[in-house]
Structures are given as C-alpha cells and as structure tokens.
Design a binder for these strands. Structure first.
Lengths: 334, 334
DNA sequence: ATGAAAGCGCTAACAA
DNA sequence: TTGTTAGCGCTTTCAT
C-alpha cells in the first residue's frame, strides 16, 4: 500500500523524475508530447505531490502562519476571510492557529509555525511574551501585527487605537448629557481592556471619575452574556442611564432584557455597542456602535505580506492606523 | 542567514544528530547528562525542528485534514472547537480548509490535504464529486463525514437527518393549527435543502401541498438577511401565519422586523428557527428552535479518528445518528 | 528541452 | 544508552 511517488509516474511515462516534476510545476518548460504522457500517467496513478518532500527540497513552504485568539468570533472570521481571499489566490497555504487569548499558547503557536518554516507570520495583537518577540524577530520573515497599534512594532503593524475608540463611544454618551454610564464586558482581553481604559479616561475628563461602573463576567462574549450582565445590574437595583458594551453581541443581549422588562431605549436607557456587526442596523431600536475595519485589516495585512515577500530588501517598521467610526443610531438618540 | 539544523545543535553539544533528535522526541531514552547538554544547545541556538524534514523521514505527518464549507458560521466554529480540543491534545495538527460550499473547491481541498499526507480526513457533508469520493477511498486513511446521514458512507458517518428535523419543525407549527407556513432561507446548501424537503413533506402530509411559501435570497445567512426576507414578504402584503427559518439568525432578523411593525409573536405570527443558538433562549419572545449537536459531532468525530488510527485493523463503515431535539418556546406558544 | 547527480534535514533500523 | 548508515521524495544545479 505504498504511496505513489514521482518515480512511479516517471517510470510509467518513460521519462526522468525531474521531467515529471517540471510538468507539475512549470508545464511550459516541457514539450507537449512529454507533457501529455506525464499527465496521463499522473491521472492513471492518482499521483499527488508529497508536500513535505517538496518543501524540504525547495526550502520553500509556500505557507503563511496566522495566529488569532479564537475562531469563535465573527470579527476574526471576517479578518480570516480577507486573508484567505488574497493569499490563497497567490498560491499560499494558510496555517491558522488559535492562541485562546493566552500569551503562552501564542508562544507555542509561534514555535509550531516556525517549525513549519512559514514564510510570514500574521498575528492578532501586539503584546507578546519576551521569547515570542525574540522568536518573531529572529525568524527573519515578514511579521504583521494587527488590530491594535504598537508603541514598538516588530515589523508591520496594521490596527487602530482601541483606547481612542472606547473614549469616543463614552464621549458620545456623555455628550448626550448622560452621566451614569456602565461598561459591560466579558473576558477582558487586551483590546477590551484598552476600550475600558478609554472609557475611564473619558469619564475622568468629564469629572465623573468616581462614577465608573464596570459589569464583568469572565465568559466569552455572547448575546446570552449580555442578558446576564444586564440582569445582574437590574436585580441589584442599579440600572445606569447608559451602557457601553465591549461588543454588539452584549448590547443585543442587554436590549433583549430591556424589552422584556419594559425599559425603553433610549428614553430610559441608552446603549452603544462595538464593532458595528451586521445586525446593529436592523435591530429595534437600531443600535449605535463603533464601526471597525476587520476586512480591511486582513486585506491590507495580506497585501503587505505579499509585498514584503516580493521585495528584495528587508522592509523596516511600518505602521498603518485604519481608524474607526462612530455610528450613532436610535439606541442613543437623545 | 542559514536556519539552525539538528547538526548544528549536535556539534555544539558534542553529540550525534540522532541523540538530539531523541532528546526532542523521546527524552526518556537519553541519559540526563547528555539531555541537559543538548537542551542547553537547543536553547542557545534557538533551534526549531523542521517539520517538513521530520515528516519526510518518519513518513508521519501528525496532521489531520478538516474540510468545512465556511468559517463564517458559529455552527462550524463550535464543531472545530471540539475537534481542536480533542485532537491537539493528542499531538495532532489540524489543517482546516474551507470549501466555500462548492464541491469543486472541496475536491481541490481534498487533493491539497492528501498532498500533506494527512492521517485522517474529517469532512462536513456527505455529497462529493465522483473524483472526490474516489480520492477519499483510495487515500486509505480514516474518513469521517459529518452533519448529515449518508445512504452510502465512505467510512465513518456522524450526523443527523436534516430532513426529519425540517419535518419536525414544520409539524410543530401544523400541530398548533397553523396552515399558512413560510420557509425562509438564504443560500440553499445541501443541509438547508434537506430541511426544505422535510418542510415540503410535512406540508403535503397535512394536505397543504399547494400552500408552500418559500422566501429565499441567495446570500449567506445572517440576522440582516432575516430582516430582508421578512420585509420582502411584508411589503408584498403576503404575511403567513407562521415562519420556519433555516437558521436562528434569520429568525432573529424576522423577529426584529415584526417588532418594528407591531406584529405580535406568537399572536399574529409564530416563528421557529433552527440550531438553537445561544441567544434563542434569551430572545424576547424566546425563540422556538431545533437543537442540533455541533459540539458532540466534533467530539465524536475526533474520538473516532483517534480510535481508527490506534486500531491495527482498518475499520468498516459505521454510522452514528446524533439526532436533534425540538425546543418549543414562546415564539410558537399557540 | 531533458537528464544525472547531489542533497534538503530529519528519523528508522541496525550496530556497538 | 549512543552512534552509524541509509534513505524518505522531492528539487536544485549543472550538464548535455
């Protein structure tokens, strides 16, 4: 039950192995006669190239490593979609690994990817362990850090200021005269933490430093979690005038609870989410949010990788701030 | 800028390459003295195993191929989560490829995975091109087909009857005396088609064959699409008594439209979804749905793969029907 | 346009 | 426990 090899195909076609290899990789370099014979033999034997052998011999993996904290989130799905779209087109394989929001797992992921001799690494986030950072630098491959802005990028950085976005959302509520503003969140990953920082700064600027309310249950973000977070505040008899959710899913859950208990939006309570997911515009009331650019982040990351790989010279540090946009809708129409 | 190899480490540690290899793979087979020296050398040089060389030499890839139609869907995220959980633990790498709901792309994905010499293939769906099926059979690796039941499984089949589930949802509405029942869907992939078949059969059994209403817009399923589908029916002045959505997301979108236009649920219209996503229980009204077992499907698939790989004998055909459950809630409380 | 020789970096099998 | 030898299946380089 031995697997079919190049040599088997070559024997059947009556040519040398290298000719078969050429037919498969650069068909134009082979005369039509031989090419047809080889192609027939390939089909007859059901030959499939052994990628490991090919990678070893050519010392090219045609693989690009991608690290995301989770696959359980549309945000990263949209981003991966863009990466796929561009890179697969150019003959690269994507090796996607999730770090489950852990810097230690991220470090292991980086080692695994380097073992695969990936030709570039695209990694969500800008905070890494010391060893991770060192490995990424020593790898001598293009490295793209995404979703946040780094004070000290390894190579290419494509992101936005999560803190400014959190600040903008909070300001929006403050500008409508709302003062008791709660921040709702699930697990506080780095990006959620930055948004929280932005919230804190805005509150302080408004002279409301003492009024911060942070509702947090350490679970992954979901509509159900939004309901739970809201319920908890309500049962505590501690409903604020406004809510800033780290995530539109949480906001939707909170809105469902409001409706269930006859709490009017935005009359009794204003709600703003984050990311501007697809459903935000069609919710009722429509949900105010901060629009972020997941697709564009992935697209640009992929393009920068391609550019780096084609460039003869090693590129220096480059930063791209893709920004965000406040999208005011009915849920905060004061 | 040559990459560090086993030989480099061996030279530095003053041992033979195979000893380094052993320290990395079966440390217990090496004396402590040498092991420590080798480990020091590995750290000093920042050595990372070249996976391609390792795979070629050992003719083991420790990789498992997974094909899903999309990453853009919680259903598959939950399933992948389970696969990861079990298989990573056992030292396997997952190579996840998406076929974008295309049988041709699925065929290419299979070829790519075979090129990687994956040790098993786990594939969502039971319908493949003739060549795909042939490749899967000839690969002589465990093959698991999931999410549906096959009349003729290649090897292991873990799924449920999408048709019976569609039938059960429709019956549930019929049993409440509802007669004008619409079926809402986005892209009609195989599974959605089967649910539609189940709907058709139930309608026919109830003597309502002529009353089928199918609202379909060929986009990927989402809350926004549910809104659009509902709007279209409403503007056509053609609102049914009940709606069966292929997906809870569509149902949520439809519910939002109802609320926006003062259409009461379930008084004016009953709605049932599919998959029982997390938010179904906390929606308002709570959403009736068909609960499906994505996590369990992934878990069992992973376990069966492990069992097959450990078994000395090639396993025959096995089928596991994981079933589904009707979860009646307020949205259909007639 | 085609082929021969050598070797990519590792591990299996065997020997010491 | 450690090392030697050979080779996994392909592609590079250099010849023809």
């Amino acid at each position: 039950m031995r697997r079919v090899t190049l040599d088997d195909v070559a024997n059947l076609a009556g040519v040398s192995p290298i000719t078969v290899s050429r037919v498969l990789r650069k068909p134009d370099a082979v005369s039509q006669g031989l090419r047809l014979r080889v192609e027939a033999a390939v089909t007859e034997l059901g030959y499939v190239t052994n990628v490991a052998a090919s990678r070893l011999a050519s010392s090219r993996s045609h693989a690009i490593g991608v690290i995301v904290p989770t696959l359980y989130n549309v945000i990263f799905a949209e981003y991966l979609f863009a990466l796929h779209e561009v890179l697969i087109e150019h003959g690269f394989q994507l090796i996607v690994v999730n770090s489950r929001y852990s810097e230690i797992e991220e470090e292991n992921a980086i080692k695994a990817l380097l073992g695969q001799r990936v030709e570039a690494i695209i990694i969500a986030g800008v905070n890494h362990t010391t060893l991770s950072r060192q490995l990424l630098i020593q790898a001598h491959v293009p490295v793209v850090e995404t979703f946040e802005l780094s004070a000290d990028p390894i190579n290419i950085n494509i992101g936005m200021s999560q803190e400014l976005a959190g600040h903008a959302a909070t300001r929006h509520l403050l500008d409508r005269g709302l003062r008791r503003i709660a921040f709702l969140t699930g697990n506080l990953d780095r990006r959620a933490q930055s948004r929280l920082d932005g919230y804190g700064i805005a509150m302080e600027e408004a002279g409301l430093a003492g009024m911060n309310v942070i509702a947090r249950i350490p679970r992954h973000s979901s509509v159900a979690l939004g309901s739970d977070l809201f319920s908890e505040m309500r049962l505590r008899g501690d409903l604020p005038e406004a809510i800033f959710c780290t995530d539109d899913n949480l906001a939707l859950g909170a809105m469902q609870e409001c409706r269930k208990h006859g709490i009017r939006m935005p009359d009794d309570i204003s709600i703003i989410g984050f990311h501007d997911l697809e459903f935000a515009a069609c919710a009722s009331p429509s949900l105010s949010s901060i629009a972020t650019r997941r697709y564009e982040t992935g697209k640009l990351a992929a393009e920068k990788v391609l550019a780096s790989l084609n460039a003869s010279t090693k590129s220096g540090v480059e930063t791209f701030d893709l920004g965000f946009a406040l999208v005011p809708r009915e849920s905060t129409a004061g």
